[in-house]
């Protein structure tokens, strides 16, 4: 598996797209710091961008890379290699290189601005960790879509729809549900609904950590009461882990049964 990882990583490091993403994050970091002129404010703005953009980039790049690697996969499958290690290697290669672009692209400008001397280092690290989680989660989801759809156009469409649903439509439906059922106690419902969407889960986690949950009003207080505690943080992390592992597991399972 490590060899596959090495080759897919090498391949990605040489591809133009990795640099585009790296430069994009780099530019984003500098622009945010320049506009906000303040580390903690920049971190908050960055959060809004990360929870929406990282999933988009991970989904699109994941599905693109999967379809582009069809030839590579077919070549590898005829070699004496275990199927699951081929696919695991590819997955880790993509998710790893995207995470690297994220960490370096955002880390560099913030480090230059004096991140390590400020109190925001913890918040910033949390942001990056969540960005990494989102990259792995949405890469996994995209690979699932890729392996289930031979037709690239369809696969691409589904991938974009998935992102749109989780990043935008889900929140709309959530809000609608809150309004329609406003006369009922909705604490448990809203907590559960958050957990079932990795983007919302990440957003809430960051908001709470940055201690700006007061902005969320009553709901914020409920969330604070749950996620603010040690149990809350641990269960949120476990949920993110489940969100990472379940798509990966389902992808490997499909890959082991597929005909090439």
């Amino acid at each position: 598996m490590l060899k596959i990882l090495k080759y897919s990583f090498k391949d990605l490091i040489r591809s133009r797209w990795s640099y585009v993403y790296f430069l994009f994050y780099l530019l984003l970091g500098f622009v945010l710091l320049f506009l906000n002129n303040d580390l903690s404010k920049a971190v908050i703005t960055l959060m809004n961008i990360i929870v929406v953009l990282v999933p988009l980039i991970a989904t699109i790049f994941g599905i693109m890379y999967y379809y582009n690697s069809r030839e590579f996969i077919e070549l590898l499958l005829a070699q004496p290699l275990k199927r699951s290690s081929i696919f695991l290697g590819l997955y880790l290669g993509v998710a790893g290189s995207l995470t690297l672009s994220l960490v370096l692209g955002l880390g560099l400008p913030f480090a230059l601005y004096g991140l390590f001397k400020s109190g925001d280092i913890l918040n910033f690290s949390l942001l990056i960790v969540i960005g990494a989680f989102l990259t792995f989660i949405f890469n996994g989801l995209a690979f699932n879509i890729g392996i289930a759809n031979e037709n690239r156009i369809k696969g691409f469409g589904y991938a974009v729809l998935l992102w749109l649903f989780l990043a935008v439509i889900y929140d709309g439906l959530f809000l609608l549900a809150l309004i329609v059922f406003e006369e009922y106690p909705l604490d448990t419902f809203s907590l559960a609904a958050t957990v079932f969407n990795p983007i919302d889960l990440s957003r809430i986690l960051i908001l709470l950590e940055l201690d700006i949950s007061a902005l969320l009003g009553y709901t914020g207080a409920i969330f604070k009461a749950f996620f603010g505690t040690r149990i809350g943080i641990i269960s949120a992390t476990i949920m993110l882990l489940i969100w990472t592992l379940v798509p990966l597991w389902s992808f490997i399972r499909r890959a082991n049964k597929k005909d090439f």
């Binding site: 040489r14 030839e71 590579f72 005829a78 004496p80």
Partner: peptide
């Protein structure tokens, strides 16, 4: 598969 050499029908290789 260590015992087998295989020539696929359509030579699909990673292009880059």
């Amino acid at each position: 598969r260590e015992e087998i050499n295989y020539l696929p029908q359509i030579a699909n290789f990673p292009g880059n």
